[in-house]
């Protein structure tokens, strides 16, 4: 039932150059869109749809988890973007928000959970501990960063990051989905 599409980042070369002396009779996709005709590939449609429906895995490890909960509460409300459906089972989640310190004891669990999530999946490293070990980087039992265990897509700095920062992180992930050709997502993206 699943349709196989290859959604990997970064991928194929840059966007096609706009040719100012376009002497062909064919129009590029952008020119068509300007005329109000939308052509899209299934890949683009899927990425657009996924961007509006990133279901996080309920995976709070430490202090950042509390700010993650605050993000879903009434004041900051992540559900406005459609992301409030926190799934308990990794089988139904898209995004793993690593919120907190990963210790050596917890490392196999993190890896197992990541593998249990179905493709396509992403990881957001929230907080200093998940980015690089944070204040505990030289501890004997702490893994210095989530990217030592799972591939990370978005890093959200802070200790803990404010809820607005986490929402920004999720929106950066959405922007990354919509523009896979960019290596680094620029700030002002709709």
């Amino acid at each position: 039932m699943a349709l196989k599409t290859n959604v990997r980042f970064p991928q194929r070369g840059g966007m096609p150059e706009g040719d100012p002396n376009n002497s062909h009779d064919l129009l590029t996709q952008e020119e068509l869109e300007k005329r109000g005709i939308l052509l899209t590939s299934l890949d683009k449609l899927f990425r657009w749809g996924t961007g509006w429906s990133l279901w996080p895995l309920q995976f709070g490890l430490a202090c950042c988890a509390i700010e993650m909960i605050c993000t879903t509460q009434s004041r900051f409300d992540m559900s406005r973007f459609g992301y409030e459906v926190f799934r308990n089972s990794p089988r139904q989640a898209d995004v793993m928000i690593v919120a907190g310190t990963i210790t050596e004891k917890m490392r196999p669990a993190v890896e197992l959970l990541y593998h249990q999530m179905p493709e396509p999946k992403w990881v957001i490293a929230m907080g200093s501990c998940a980015i690089s070990g944070g204040p505990f980087v030289d501890s004997y039992s702490v893994v210095a960063g989530a990217d030592k265990v799972v591939p990370v897509d978005v890093y959200v700095p802070g200790c803990p990051p404010r809820p607005e920062a986490l929402i920004d992180g999720m929106l950066q992930l959405k922007a990354k989905l919509l523009h896979p050709e960019r290596q680094q997502v620029v700030r002002d993206v709709k």
Partner: peptide, 11 residues
């Protein structure tokens, strides 16, 4: 327990 043991006292 111990899944969040960060070695705080030693640090």
């Amino acid at each position: 327990i111990g899944y969040l043991h960060r070695g705080m006292e030693k640090l």
